[in-house]
Design a protein around this nucleic acid. Structure first.
Lengths: 192, 192
DNA sequence: ATTTACCATTGACATATATCAATGCTTTTT
DNA sequence: AAAAAGCATTGATATATGTCAATGGTAAAT
C-alpha cells in the first residue's frame, strides 16, 4: 500500500523498518476514481498527497472559464496546494484525478507532529521542497524565454510518460498555449 | 554587520544570543561595487548570499546575447544559484550588483556543517525554501496566465521598491517582455 | 565642462499566437 | 446499438507582441 512512498522516502532519507512503522501511523490511504475531486477551490488544503498509482492534476479556472493546469502528478509525485496547506487559507487550486488513483495522504496535523518528533521528516520535506523549487525554476525560465515549440520539446523529453497518458489539450494548458496552437506546433515539427 | 540577517532569521526561527554567536562563525561578509560580479556563468556557486544593503540580480544570457533576468534581490533577500549550490554543477546564472552592496555569505561548506550541527538552521532553510517556492509559483502562474499589463500591475503592487530603484528595461526582462512593449503598456495605463 | 554611455519613448512593419468556426474521429455513456 | 461527449485538426481572421530604427533626455565618465 505504501510501497512507492517509502521507496521514494528512502531514496532521500534512509529509514529503518522501525522508523517506517512509526511513520505509517501518520499516513492515510485514499482511493480516487477518475474525475473525482481531491480538493475543491475554496476549501483549505489540509493534506499533501503522494501518488502511489494513477494521475492527478491541479488547476485553476479563470473568469472566462478557462482551465489553467499548474501541475500534473503521476506515480511517485506529490501534489497539493502548498500555500493553502501551510497557511490554512482557502485553496486557490483545484485538484482532481485524471485516472483512477491511489494516494497516500499526510494531513496537516500529521505534518506538524512529524516536524516536531521526527528530524528525518524535516529533512525529507526540505529535500522535497528543494527539488520542487528547482523544477519550478526551470519551468519558469522555459515559460519566459522559450517559444511554444521549444517548451513542448523540453516538456516531452523531460516527461515522456505524461505525453503518453495525458490528453494533448491539457498539456497545452500546462504550457500556456491554446490547444490549436499546440496542434499546429506539433504538425510543424513532424513535417520537418 | 549582520543585523538584518539575524533580524530575518529570528522572524523565522528565534535564536538566543549564544546561538547567534555560534552562527556568526559560519558567516562571511562581502562588499560589492555596482556592476561587480558575484557569480559568473560556469563557476560553481558555492554560497548563498543574503543582502544586507544594496541590490543584485541573477540572469542568463541567451545565444542572441539577450539578458533574461531571473531574480532581483534587495535588502533582506537571499540570492544564489540553488541548483549549482546543491549539486556542485557549474552555475547557469550570473549574478551581479545593481548598486554598491553589502552581503552575508554562507559557503557550501558552512551550509553542510550547519545542517549537521544546528537543527534550527535546517528549519530556517526549509522555511526559506517554502517562501521561495510559493513566490515562484505565483510568478509562474502570472507568467502563463496573465497579459503583460496584468503582470506589470501585479509586479508593481508586490514590489513597489523594485519599481523605484531598478531600470525599467530590467523589469521588462524579468517579466519576459521587450523594453518597448513595457513602455507601451505603461503609457496605455496612464492614458486610462 | 564635454563627451559618452545609458535609458525610455515612439513609429512602421513583421510575425506569432489567439479566436472563432467547422469537421471527423474515438471513446464513453445510455 | 445508438447517442453523446471529448478530442485533435484545419482554415480564416484578428490581435498582440516583437523587431528594427530613430530621437531626445539624463546620468556617468573623462
Amino acid at each position: 500500500m505504501y510501497d512507492l512512498f517509502f521507496q521514494k522516502f528512502n531514496e532521500k532519507v534512509p529509514l529503518t523498518k522501525d522508523e517506517e512503522g512509526f511513520f505509517k501511523t501518520y499516513l492515510t490511504p485514499k482511493k480516487l476514481r477518475k474525475k473525482q475531486y481531491l480538493l475543491q477551490e475554496g476549501d483549505p488544503c489540509n493534506f499533501t498527497a503522494f501518488v502511489e498509482k494513477g494521475a492527478l492534476r491541479s488547476y485553476t479556472i479563470d473568469e472566462k472559464g478557462v482551465e489553467r493546469i499548474s501541475q500534473f502528478a503521476l506515480e511517485g509525485w506529490t501534489i497539493g496546494d502548498l500555500y493553502s496547506f501551510l497557511t490554512g487559507e482557502p485553496a486557490t487550486y483545484q485538484i482532481d484525478a485524471l485516472e483512477d488513483s491511489e494516494l497516500v495522504l499526510i494531513s496537516k496535523q500529521a505534518h506538524e507532529e512529524l516536524l516536531k518528533k521526527a528530524p528525518k521528516y524535516e529533512t525529507y520535506m526540505r529535500l522535497q521542497l528543494t527539488g520542487a523549487y528547482i523544477a519550478m525554476q526551470r519551468r519558469l525560465t522555459s515559460s519566459i524565454s522559450f517559444s511554444p515549440e521549444e517548451r513542448y520539446i523540453a516538456f516531452s523529453s523531460l516527461y515522456p510518460d505524461i505525453i503518453q497518458r495525458i490528453p494533448q489539450h491539457m498539456i497545452a494548458s500546462y504550457l500556456g498555449l491554446t490547444p490549436e496552437t499546440l496542434s499546429r506546433v506539433r504538425s510543424k515539427m513532424t513535417r520537418k
